[in-house]
């Protein structure tokens, strides 16, 4: 077996002196489709945020591609392991400018915006070309989620940390988004993701392993 992409050992997170979870161990291997489950308030978002390096590590160790997160230059790491917020937030401007602007960041400057790729994704999501011209302020919560998702996926990350990505989508679009994730992963089979959701049926469809947060702490 090859090495895990993401190796988490003894991770702990406390909020105001109370440990929300401790001793979380997980191994995300290439190609893994993992779910993080737990009741509301069990800190699933906080786990994903910590994995994305958006919150400091309070206890334990995270290793990405055999190198400790402490040693990674975070923008490089985050370009490979992208966290998608539960409530997406877009910049002012059109959908397309939101998708293009990320290429101005120094980590992505060597790549360039691929309109055709986005149009293919949009077709899969059942949206036409003129969706790209819509101002971001006129989008519904679900549409904003789609844009945030496309913004991340076009950067070809190795890992996606999906924080309830379909919470604000209708069933139809949610389904299509699942397909899109599948497509993203099939483009390169060593891609992996960690997905949180309250929808057990969905998690059955899109994930193979579960990490449970809450009273009983266990890995995988």
């Amino acid at each position: 077996m090859n090495d895990p992409l993401l190796l988490v050992e003894g991770l702990g997170r406390k909020v105001e002196h109370r440990w929300l979870w401790r001793k979380v161990d997980l191994r995300l291997y290439p190609g893994d489709r993992m779910a993080a489950i737990g009741p509301s308030g069990s800190g699933k978002s906080l786990l994903l945020r910590t994995l994305a390096g958006l919150d400091p590590i309070q206890e334990g160790q995270i290793t990405f591609q055999q190198q400790s997160l402490q040693k990674w230059f975070m923008p490089h790491y985050r370009a490979r392991a992208i966290y998608l917020h539960q409530r997406p937030s877009l910049l002012e401007g059109t959908v397309e400018s939101n998708l293009q602007d990320v290429y101005q960041l120094s980590v992505h400057r060597k790549r360039s915006y691929d309109r055709q790729k986005i149009l293919n994704y949009l077709e899969l999501l059942g949206r036409s070309d003129n969706f790209l011209e819509r101002p971001s302020t006129t989008l519904s919560g679900g549409e904003a989620q789609i844009v945030a998702f496309l913004r991340a996926v076009q950067l070809s990350p190795l890992i996606l940390l999906l924080d309830e990505p379909t919470a604000s989508l209708d069933a139809e679009t949610a389904h299509r988004l699942e397909k899109l994730v599948e497509m993203w992963q099939s483009e390169e089979p060593n891609r992996a993701y960690l997905w949180t959701s309250h929808d057990r049926e969905q998690l059955k469809r899109v994930t193979d392993y579960q990490l449970t947060l809450g009273e009983t702490l266990s890995g995988e």
Partner: peptide, 12 residues
């Protein structure tokens, strides 16, 4: 959220 969305896709 805007600031963190940028950080999450690799902004310094």
């Amino acid at each position: 959220e805007k600031v963190e969305a940028l950080l999450a896709v690799g902004a310094t």
